[in-house]
Write a protein that binds this DNA or RNA. Structure first.
Length: 274
DNA sequence: ACGAGGTCCTGCGAGC
DNA sequence: TGCTCGCAGGACCTCG
């Protein structure tokens, strides 16, 4: 669920209450979300550490703990929240990791489906991890020339390519649908069949839509909550996602919903997207 | 090398 | 009303 705007919102909202605090105790409630580390080792390494920074990279929230980085990837159903007091049993039900801070507040990673991932990486480990990720869509490396070159190397569908985190990070299913509609590109079009002009349009639309979604604090379809536990607001601005069968906002044609591309929900206007 | 499809999980809503 | 089934915003892995 959380794509770039949702993780960006979480990080911005959590930063003020997390950065500068130290971790007095840690608890792993469900260890199947941990990758490359045991619960025991994670708890030992984060206990006593100060949260020097909290940043977003791709769809990950990255806590800077001394030289270690605690990397949380919320997957489909993960959220990060700060609680003012110890967790109630209802709050603890889907808790995966809780960090007790030195002001007695509790920072919790909660994940109903547990498809998210948690890593604790050394500087070298983080460097390797980061290097496998593509450019940030809102950064200077994500240019029309870059995207056109990446698309032209592949016969895969353009939708699958822009959701590939090695091509560009942060774009998931919702924003891929929206950006392709806004750019007038059929999601099933092969990457090597996308013109330079369309690639340039797509870069602009991805950036515009992600920025607008950040301003709206993300899209809440079902589970997503901001770092303050609130719903996002971008769902009311969606033009195609969740609107299969309804009329296209531009031309009135009935929007098509399919699962043929990468087994993910795809909604498009056959008239506007070619 | 690439692409298709299964897999990890739980909850929910549609449909019978 | 109550049950089963399919599907859900992500990403990894294996297989052909």
């Amino acid at each position: 669920m959380p794509e770039l705007p949702e993780v960006e919102t979480i990080v911005r909202e959590l930063g003020p209450s997390a950065v500068g605090r130290s971790i007095v105790a840690a608890r792993v409630h469900k260890d199947d979300v941990l990758r490359g580390i045991t619960a025991r080792t994670l708890v030992r390494r984060v206990r006593g550490a100060t949260i020097a920074g909290l940043v977003r990279r791709a769809k990950h929230a990255v806590f800077e703990l001394g030289s270690w980085r605690l990397v949380v990837q919320p997957g489909m159903s993960g959220s990060l929240l700060v609680h003012e007091s110890p967790l109630t049993s209802a709050q603890a039900q889907y808790a995966v990791l809780s960090l007790e801070l030195d002001d007695h507040r509790v920072l919790v990673y909660r994940d109903v489906r547990r498809l998210g991932r948690i890593y604790l990486l050394s500087p070298a480990g983080w460097k390797r991890y980061d290097a496998r990720l593509g450019p940030e869509p809102l950064g200077g490396r994500f240019t029309p020339e870059y995207l056109a070159a990446r698309l032209h190397r592949s016969r895969q569908s353009v939708k699958k390519l822009i959701m590939d985190q090695r091509v560009v990070v942060g774009v998931g299913n919702i924003y891929a649908n929206e950006a392709l509609f806004a750019a007038g590109i059929d999601p099933s079009r092969a990457g090597n069949q996308v013109t330079e002009a369309s690639a340039a349009l797509l870069v602009n639309e991805i950036r515009r839509i992600l920025r607008a979604a950040i301003r709206a604090k993300g899209t809440t379809f079902r589970d997503y909550r901001t770092g303050k536990g609130e719903r996002g607001n971008f769902q009311s601005d969606l033009q195609v996602y969740g609107r299969g069968g309804e009329p296209c906002v531009v031309c009135g044609t009935r929007l098509t919903e399919t699962h043929l591309i990468d087994a993910r929900t795809t909604v498009l206007c056959h008239r506007c997207q070619v």
